[in-house]
């Protein structure tokens, strides 16, 4: 299964959320591979706490691989190469967790040629042989990277794929997320041009809300009544807006609450962060865990 993680805007929490989902999915016993296709700023290494590839790798990054500069992309086994003590041993029952970092100093693709698509197809095909899940961080907005994976997935008809569109819970983000999917040259529009069936493609797209502050959240306890009332009204308005833009409950796969740790640092939330050091919220870990199950739960992906 291929999961493409995209967002319309930058800085939505796409990378942090998708890495955490991948991590949880591995903990659930699946072999997981994370591909950093955010060529402009490959930072997945930092989130996995692998400092040697924190800003991408110098040799054999995905960028280099797709351009034909190396025969095989560099792989990082997170369970052995992470700098975080707590990640460095594979928990019993967990699956593999492998990171394919981007190239250090790589830039956004400026065009997609057939050769690149061919290499992308080759990569996905090979990874599918050995991993249950490949999570691909496609970067933000309409990009050549998104175009490339749209083309590649058409050529791999028997490999299942799904799209996650990440957005924050604000007016601008809701409208933008919808635009990325249904707007001109959006995923459906471009997808159809490359040979996807728009109906089918639509069924393979779900939204994920990131850093959501629920009106009843613990963080809001100290607020004045007026402030709380205003937030509730906003939330209701956003829900109505989301519904109108097809980004509402039915098209949503899940949401991740705002977490103090993630607000300060891009990292994986381990059970230890929740239970032992208690720096992260249990709800955050639970949300990632839930999403990690839902991405492969067919009932969550039935036609809308």
């Amino acid at each position: 299964m291929l999961i493409f993680a995209i967002s319309d805007k930058g800085g939505t929490g796409r990378s942090v959320t998708s890495t955490n989902i991948g991590y949880r999915h591995a903990l659930q016993g699946n072999d997981v591979c994370y591909l950093d296709f955010d060529f402009g700023s490959p930072t997945a290494g930092a989130i996995f706490s692998v400092s040697s590839v924190a800003r991408g790798t110098r040799n054999g990054g995905l960028h280099e691989y797709l351009r034909g500069g190396c025969a095989e992309p560099h792989r990082v086994d997170v369970w052995t190469e992470s700098d975080r003590e707590g990640l460095r041993t594979k928990p019993p029952g967990a699956g593999r967790l492998v990171l394919l970092p981007g190239s250090e100093g790589g830039g956004e693709l400026s065009a997609v040629d057939d050769e690149m698509v061919r290499r992308c197809v080759q990569l996905f095909g090979r990874l599918e042989e050995e991993f249950d899940l490949c999570m691909v961080d496609v970067s933000a907005g309409r990009s050549f990277t998104a175009e490339m994976v749209l083309q590649a997935s058409v050529r791999l008809p028997s490999i299942p794929f799904r799209w996650l569109v990440f957005h924050r819970w604000t007016r601008q983000h809701i409208i933008a997320a919808d635009g990325l999917v249904t707007g001109a040259d959006g995923l459906l529009d471009a997808g159809a041009r490359f040979g996807h069936d728009p109906e089918e493609l639509r069924d393979r797209i779900r939204f994920v809300r990131t850093a959501v502050l629920e009106p009843d959240a613990a963080e809001l306890v100290g607020l004045r009544d007026e402030q709380r009332a205003w937030l509730s009204a906003c939330d209701a308005e956003l829900r109505e807006l989301a519904g109108r833009h097809g980004v509402g409950r039915t098209a949503m796969l899940g949401k991740v609450p705002l977490d103090p740790v993630l607000q300060w640092r891009e990292q994986l939330i381990s059970d230890e962060d929740v239970l032992a050091s208690k720096i992260a919220n249990a709800e955050t870990a639970a949300a990632f865990d839930e999403l990690a199950k839902k991405i492969v739960d067919d009932s969550a992906w039935e036609g809308l």
Partner: peptide, 8 residues
């Protein structure tokens, strides 16, 4: 001719 990377 052409470049394969933005700003490259």
């Amino acid at each position: 001719p052409g470049s394969v990377q933005a700003m490259g």
